[in-house]
């Protein structure tokens, strides 16, 4: 979990960086250039498969682990307080599953359209136009779904960042609080960073 997770953590950083470029200039030319580069360069074409594999491994392993862990407690407690732990840590499978559902929608919205239709290649739409087209007032529900998913993703990351270091044994009493802090910061940056984009374009269209 930790290795695939950390890989996905890096991926999210890159993804966020590229996405935030949509805010750089009004016509999206910087974003288009970078997006085009990402879509066509050979390394990225390979990485795309690695990324897919990373996701699948992460999900498979999560399912195996969750099933095993559930089997380890055949009789549940009548009263349970979850002790003094975070909601994130107790509900990783739920937040993960929600993010997965979002991912499917997200792939249909963008990945499918870019890779399996002529939309971009034919010049009908630029990458920038495709991104912004979803976040229009008439499709308000997309924005809402996206933002809720980003919050859940943030919660998922809040636990996962420090947890992966713990699992890899790269932790001790003094680093634990630091990693927890960095993890929370990272989760906020990702959740807020991604959320800014729909909010920005929605506001832009409305105002």
């Amino acid at each position: 979990m930790s290795l695939t997770g950390l890989f996905l953590v890096v991926f999210l950083c890159v993804h966020l960086f590229v996405n935030l470029l949509t805010l750089v200039d009004a016509d999206g030319s910087t974003f288009n250039t970078v997006a085009h580069f990402m879509g066509t360069n050979i390394i990225m074409s390979v990485m795309q498969w690695v990324l897919g594999a990373g996701f699948i491994l992460h999900m498979l392993w999560a399912t195996v682990l969750t099933l095993k862990n559930r089997a380890a407690r055949p009789v549940k407690y009548e009263v349970s307080t979850n002790s003094d732990t975070s909601w994130s840590s107790q509900n990783m499978f739920i937040s993960g599953a929600t993010v997965l559902a979002f991912l499917v929608l997200h792939l249909v919205n963008y990945f499918y359209k870019i890779k399996f239709t002529e939309l971009i290649e034919s010049g009908q739409m630029s990458e920038f136009e495709l991104v912004t087209s979803i976040f229009q007032p008439q499709y308000w529900y997309f924005s809402v779904i996206y933002i809720i998913s980003f919050i859940l993703l943030g919660l998922h990351l809040n636990h996962s960042f420090q947890s992966s270091f713990q699992t890899l044994g790269l932790n001790n009493t003094s680093w634990l609080p630091r990693l927890k802090f960095i993890g929370t910061l990272y989760a906020i940056v990702i959740a807020v960073g991604f959320s800014i984009i729909p909010i920005f374009f929605l506001m832009k269209a409305l105002l």
């Binding site: 979990m1 095993k68 862990n69 089997a71 975070s86 840590s89 713990q166």
Partner: peptide
């Protein structure tokens, strides 16, 4: 022996 895997929730330490 069938113990579950650790997902680092920290409940053990808390209790």
């Amino acid at each position: 022996l069938g113990f579950g895997g650790c997902t680092n929730t920290g409940a053990c330490e808390a209790e």
